[in-house]
Each structure stands twice: as C-alpha cells, then as structure tokens.
Design a protein around this nucleic acid. Structure first.
Lengths: 202, 202, 202, 202
DNA sequence: AATGAATGAGTCTTCATTCAT
DNA sequence: GATGAATGAAGACTCATTCAT
C-alpha cells in the first residue's frame, strides 16, 4: 500500500469518525455535511468521493461500530466456558462497549424511526441485520444453557431480548446520571438479576 | 360550553392526534407541518393558533401521552395489595399502554437526542421530568418491597430502571415482529424474570 | 345622530387613531392588523367594516393628518398680512404641527416608496395630491412676494420646496436629538435663512 | 488574484447592486430575496454566502453608497479654497451624487423607520454613524466660515442640517418631476439661498 | 483526487382577509 | 354590527448535492 492509498483510506476514516462523533452527539438531521466536513478537516465535496450521500455515511458509521462490537462478542463466545459464564462475559463486553461508545449507542437506539420511509426501505436493513445477528448470538448461548438445564425452558429469543434490555436500561440510566461511576460496575447487577430470574430453580 | 368552544377544543385535539401519529411514525424532522395539517384536515396556519411552533407541538404530544400513562399508574399504585402485586400490576399497565400507543412509544425512546441543543435546553426538561416521575413511582414500590424483606437490598432506583428496561425491550421485540400476538402476554415473563431475579432468596 | 351612529363613528375613529399611532411608530409593514385591533380594543374583523384593507387604513390615517394640517395652513394664509409675514406664520404652523405629530411625520416622509407598485398606482395619489396642495399654497405666497418685489424673481415652486426642506431638516435634526428643546424655537432660524437667502437685495 | 477570486468578488458586487436597485425602488419589505436573486442572476442560496440575511444585505447596500459619498466629500474638502468655495463644492458633489444614485437616495431618507425595533437596535447604528460623519464635515466647514467672519455666528450644526435639507428637498422635487433637467443645475440656487441666508451682512 | 462556490427544492412561519356565528 | 377562528399564499432561510477548477 503506497502513500497515496494510505492517505485515501485515511480520508474515508477521518470522515467516518467525524460523522460518528457528530451524528452521535446531535442525531441525523441536525448534523450537516458542512459540520462533518469541518470536523474531518476536509472539503465538503470530498465526502462525496467516499460516500454516496448523507444516509450512506450515517449507516456506514453505525455499521462500523456494530461490526466492531460483533467481532468482540464473537471472540468472547469462543471461550471454553459454561454458557452461564459466556453469557456473563458477553454482558461485560456489551457494557464496556457502550461505555466506550456512549455517543454511538445513543444513535443506535433511536435511528430506526428517524428516516423518511423511502430511505428506510433502502438502508435500514443494513443495520437491522447486524442488530439481529447480535441477538442471535445471545440467543444461541441461552439455547445452549436451556439444553444443559441451567436455564428454564422459556422462549430463548425473548430471554435474549430481555438480557439486552437490562444492559441497555442500565446504560441509559448511567448516561442520565451524567456518567458518574463506571458502567462496567453494573455488570454483576445485570448478570445477577438476569441469571437469577432465568435459571432453573432447584 | 357552546358549539364554537367545542369545535375549538376539538381542533387542538385533532392537531395533537395528527402530530402524535406522524411524529411517532416518522420522527421529528421528517414530519412537516404540512403533513400534520393535512392529517388533521385543517389549514397549516390553524396549527399555530394552538401551538407556538413545531417543537411545542412535538412536546405537547408526548407530554399528553405520558400524563395519561402516569395517571393510570398512579391509580394502580393505590390498590391495597402487596408491593409485589402492585409492581406486577404496574408492569401490566405499562405493557398495555405501550401496546395501545406503540407509535408514541417509539418517539418517547428516541426523542432526547433528536433536537438541536438550543431546543433541548428549553424543552427536554418538560418530558424528562415526567419520565423520572414514572421511575420514581416504581422506585418507591421497590423500596417498600425491600423494607418488607421481599426483595434483596439492592439499589432500588437501578432495579426500577431494570424493570422498565425489561418491559421496554419486550415491546421493541414485539414491534419488530410486526406486532404479532399480544404484548400483554409478555407480562408474566417480564414479571417472572424480574421478580425471581430480584427477590430475597429463602 | 343617534347613539348607534355615534358609536359607529367612534369605532372608525378608534381604529384610525390606533393605526396612526402604530404605523407612525413602526412603519407600514411591521404593523399588523392584529396590532391595530388590539390597540383599538376591537376585533380584527371590525376593522374591515370601516376600511377596505390595510392600505386603505394606512392612507386614511395619513390623509386625516394632512387634512388637519392643510386646514390650519389655509386659515393662516387668509390673515391680512404681508406675504413675508404669512410665510413666516406658515413655517411656524408647519413646525408646530410636526412637533405635535412627530410620529406621523416620520411616515409621511417615507411612505411613497414603501408600497408595492400595484398598490402605489391605486393609492399613492391620494397623499401625493395633498402634499402638492400644500406646496401650492406656499408657492402662491412666494409668487405674491415676488410680484411685490420682496423676493428675487426665482422659480417660485423651487423656493417653496426649499422652504419646506429647511423646515423638514430642522425637524429631523430635532427628532434625532431625541426631541430636546422645542421645535418651534427653530422657527426664526428657518425663517431668517430662507428670507435672507431669497429676498431682494437693496 | 485568480479567476475564481475575481468571480467571487463580482458576485458579492452583483448581489449588492441588485439589492441597491430593488430596495431603492420598492423599499425593504416589498423587496424579496427571490427578486434580488433574479435581478442578480444568481440563485437565492448564493446571496446567503455573501450576506448574513436580508437586513445585513440592506445595510451593506446603503453603507457602501454612503462610504462612496463620504470619500468624495473628504477629497473635496481638502482643496485649498475658502470655506465658502469648499461648501459650494460640497453641495455640488452632493447633488451630483444624488443625481447619479437617485434610487439609493430614496432608501437613505426613509430607512430609519422601516425596520422592526429589534433589528433597528442592532443595525441602524451602522448607517446613522455614517450620516452623522457627513454632517460633521459640513459642520466643520461652517465653523471655519464663522471664525473667518464670513457667516453669522449661528448654531453651526443647525446650519449644516439646513444646508443638507435644501439639497435634499431640491432632489426630492427633481425626482417628483420625473427627473427632467439636470439636478446639478440647482447647485447655484441651493448655494445662493444658503449663503445669502447665512452670511454675515455688511 | 480535492475543493468549495453555486444551486434551488423544501420548510417553517407569518399575517391579511374571510365568514359562520 | 361585531367577533375571532380559520385560511393559505407568500417569504426568509437551510442544506444536500453538484461540478468547474
């Protein structure tokens, strides 16, 4: 990879990072392409060399983050541990990710309803798909735990959803408290409630 | 109250309902005042007789719904039941409300990050306050349950947040499944996981 | 004239006075019919019972003032005095009028260029005509003074214009000084300069 | 200066000239940004690249003209002539300027009362200041003439105001006659009346 | 490849005027 | 006659996107 190519890749990254930051802080509509160009220290026209349009940039930014999260989770799930422990590990990774990417998280939860219907049809799928991949991983972990008799035989998909909801809600609370303390500290609380709530009673 | 007065009140309601519907479906920015006027079957200028501007209308719509929910919850909490039963009742009401107002629910979760900072400062408080009132009610129920030894002595506010998160996540899931089945059916699942997860072990 | 008729006339006057006040203070466009209705303590629709539209009201207000001025001047001109003295008297009346109606004066000088061309054609004439009547009276006084050899044989119309200009400019200056002192005091200055400047040298 | 820069400067000028013309012809409110864009043969959005908003454009247009006039006057005042001659020169320049910029002149006299109070506070000062600079120059010339005993010891500022008023009124008259003849021809009339009216009698 | 000036469709908001009561 | 709610045309301003340099 020569200098020029590096520079090119850099520009795409620069832009995506600027976009991530601003979309996260202000949401989709209030963020202008001018803002992003200024933040990226590039000309406005340059953005269009790397991204089709504003929506494309928006979804690219989110996808990028979600891919990073998915990659980390997939790594964790491979560990040779019991389902319970792997679930706990996953929650930990999830909370740590949200803590590190609090802004991005704010978009992720809100975006699906943000865009005009025409855009939705074209683009929402790109993110939805990743979100459901994520749920699927948790789902499979829970299915395994159910098979092993560690968890009661409930709807595993719904349990996965509930687990995500617990993590999610604690994050929102943490953000609303202006992010005092560490989000990761809530890992055991999330885990405890979910596990006690879901596990098979003796 | 004469005919004219009735008509007036009706118009404010017509507009708010149109706004609720469209803001819920499309979010704040993609919804235009023209859209709302058309939906309400009134002229655009008429909206401005009843609401200061788009933001005011947006928040009025949300407030209205949240007030209705709060009123229902406050009624339920008065019942002469055990904390556990009242918490269960509350979840039921919450899910039923979300089921009946699925659209509005979509805005409620996303709005905080939707608006330009200047607007936020002025107006977000109006909704935030109602949201926290809601959490406070649940919080107090849980505190009571902790005092009575029914729930482990954890951070009651966080438990309230988790309970809401569970209800919330099941709603999102239900919506994502295109709303097949009844959301209320998930009441016992939400309740079971939360209560088993939080209650004092013998 | 019965009670009802008195009341009606009162309403037209109320409205015109409110209009005079507000048009004078803010100019034509920034003054709204709502403002005028509020100031007149009548309903907006009532204005349209007495005036065709906003322009009509505007010109009616100005005409009314100009008619009052013209009446006073015509009275003065009848006095059995020398042209010089009658001109001096006229300047005095003019300055006193402007002092009493400083706001109205502000509109009078600016209005001709204020309105869309379509309106201009229809309505400007109404005021222009009165303005030129006013100049005509001064013109005739000066012609008389020229005939009597008191004033040099210059273009009498231009001299009339210059005289008005002197009075006008001193008024603007007086207003710009936030109306300290009495405008009438400038009567002798205006008179002196004009008369010394115009009269026949011995 | 490359082609692009030339083009840019041109555009700002094109816009200002279009604005000057239209504001002058129709006044502030009846002139729309669309009109100006059409007149300037540029897109509406382009105006906002060079001017903050309509008010800014309005005042920029006036300021520009007044600056040109001030520059010409300042040059004339430097001439090694008697005060009387320099005053005469100044009137000549003033009338010539008004003749060349008859439209702009129309705005200048009317603008102060044209704008909503909020705008006035922010922006009127920009023009008022230039107007008073102009009066100050004439004022100083007259003071000098008084010191030299050429003019009677009257209030020099008021004399300056009167002189401007004479020039001004002749311009209005010339415009009202649909601009027949040359305004500059009135130079000697204006001068004669003012000077005879103001000078020290032997 | 990079730039940023230019574009103009799209939006909120105002306000003169009408008309049912 | 009096009212004031309703109307909708009109206008300032924004901003994603294009394209000549």
């Amino acid at each position: 990879m020569n200098k020029r190519q590096i520079k090119q890749r850099d520009h795409a990254i620069q832009i995506r990072e600027a976009a991530e930051k601003l979309f996260a802080k202000r949401g989709f509509y209030p963020t202008t392409m001018d803002d992003i160009a200024r933040e990226a220290k590039l000309a406005k026209g340059t953005i269009y060399l790397y991204f089709d349009n504003k929506e494309d940039l928006f979804f690219s930014a989110i996808e990028n983050k979600l891919d990073a999260l998915l990659a980390r989770i997939r790594e964790a799930v491979k560990e040779p541990l019991s389902p319970a422990q792997r679930i706990k590990l996953t929650i930990g990774i999830h909370l740590k990710f949200l803590e590190e990417n609090r802004d991005c998280f704010k978009i992720m939860q809100s975006f699906p309803e943000q865009l005009k219907e025409k855009l939705e049809r074209k683009l929402k799928g790109r993110v939805i798909e990743r979100q459901s991949q994520y749920i699927k991983i948790i789902d499979r972990l829970i299915q395994e735990a159910i098979r092993k008799g560690e968890v009661r035989p409930l709807d595993s998909r719904k349990l996965a959803v509930v687990l995500m909801g617990i993590a999610h809600s604690l994050t929102v609370y943490w953000i609303s408290k202006k992010e005092k303390g560490s989000l990761s500290e809530d890992e055991s609380l999330a885990w405890e409630i979910f596990w006690e709530g879901a596990r098979r009673k003796v």
